[in-house]
Write a protein that binds this DNA or RNA. Structure first.
Lengths: 252, 252
DNA sequence: CGACTAGTTGAGGCCAGTCAATGTTGGTGG
DNA sequence: CCACCAACATTGACTGGCCTCAACTAGTCG
């Protein structure tokens, strides 16, 4: 469960830095989701000057680990990440499932060290947002400053929803909500909301939802049984998302 | 469970604005915990110019509700608050337990509306931090800018820990962790870590920990039975916090 | 082809939830 | 001051949803 990758402790395995002569936020397909949202020409250009590096992370590679010195935020350009929180006693839980366009590493701002672990679920690529320069730039560009805070705040709200899920919903409701949430996020990225491929194993999904993998597996089967979804391993098709929604919203 | 206070829907019941001729962050006993942390004389003074209003919220009064327009953050000066997240289907869960010196309202930054509800657990008082002015000031004062981000980020980390608690810990571990956490926070505020009065009912604690009130009540009794704590309603004395810690940290 | 990882399914047990009765506390008005 | 009431808390008996343990299957990669 720990590192699937052989070893080299505390190294960013599978991480290859590459300097691009130009990486343009202004032409990036994700600019309407990402940090540059709403920036004008000039602002975009100045951001480009600061965001000069990308990192490739191969499947199962770690982007950062708890305790690593915080130097940068990362914008996911391609691929998918999970973030994991670790307890002192070795217990761990998937805390986030992050798609392209999202910013990760925000937990590191608090005490200059990352507090959780980010692992790529498939071969991925992130833009490095060096925190110092970004922060200084944000002093001059109100929109950028606002975007940063906005992203943090929305994460907070997302986690509130997650806490509600973990604290007061049944296993079935959790899975239904998870599927609807993923569907919605794929949709805002221009992909199908009806049909997608999950990048997590049953065990990772279970951990994320506060369940056990057997329970998740059973639930996939039973939702398929009742005709709400169609599952083939990690490929999921939502056949009746209205019914899924009803599963979640049944008032007590 | 909803509003214990008679009615006046969507009004800030029990809220009384009062302008103080001078409210000084620089002399506030909480300045080492709060937003002004690390600010120099000049910065402190400029913050003071912006933080001119305080609000009194009586027990069970709401400081803000979901959907209210976001205009300000609030620093708790005196008292205790809980924040509650609400689901569309009426379910609700206590998402936070906030002591003096903490900032609440951060969830409102994301979409210019608060997404959760803040209610006072006892007669309390907050400093109003009007967001626009604070934001503009943060452009000029790097420390203030940093503090804002830091507070947000730490909240994120705190919620990660909460997700781990809700997702992978037993009822007993949850309560033990809760008590240790509260003890620690009282300690950093200069109060006893051994003895304190909880400001939440059993039901609120249960909701916060993803349990039912009966379970929490039983756990209080059984922890007392085994000599780890002493309980008298909401007054708690930790008799053996090392043992509590061991309860939490038992590796699986 | 064998070893390994991921996923499915079944049988049984336990932890926490549910329902219900009773006890305790604190605020209010006579 | 005390009686009363409502909110809060405790405790017991029972139930059930999810976990645990375990066997088996399907796909993948060297």
């Amino acid at each position: 469960m720990r590192d699937a990758v052989p070893a080299q402790p505390n190294t960013c395995q599978g991480v290859v830095a590459l300097h691009e002569l130009r990486s343009h936020c202004g032409t990036c397909g994700l600019r309407t989701l990402c940090l540059p949202l709403g920036l004008d020409e000039a602002g975009m250009h100045r951001l480009d000057e600061v965001v000069t590096t990308r990192i490739r992370v191969r499947r199962k590679g770690m982007l950062y680990r708890p305790g690593d010195r915080f130097t940068a935020l990362y914008a996911i350009r391609i691929g998918t990440f999970k973030t994991i929180v670790l307890a002192e006693d070795g217990r761990e839980q998937v805390a986030g499932y992050h798609l392209a366009g999202e910013i990760i590493g925000l937990d590191g701002i608090g005490d200059d060290r990352y507090t959780c672990q980010a692992a790529a679920l498939e071969d991925s690529e992130v833009c490095v947002l060096p925190f110092g320069p970004i922060d200084r730039l944000s002093a001059e560009i109100p929109t950028l400053r606002r975007n940063l805070l906005r992203i943090l705040s929305r994460d907070l709200t997302r986690e509130h929803a997650m806490m509600l899920l973990l604290g007061s919903r049944s296993a079935e409701e959790r899975l239904a909500l998870f599927l609807l949430n993923v569907a919605e996020r794929y949709q805002t990225r221009g992909y199908s909301a009806r049909e997608f491929v999950l990048r997590m194993t049953r065990e990772e999904i279970a951990s994320y939802l506060g369940l056990k993998l057997e329970t998740v597996s059973r639930l996939f089967s039973s939702l398929q049984e009742s005709g709400l979804i169609q599952v083939q391993g990690r490929a999921v098709k939502l056949l009746d998302s209205a019914a899924l929604r009803r599963l979640v919203d049944r008032r007590e």
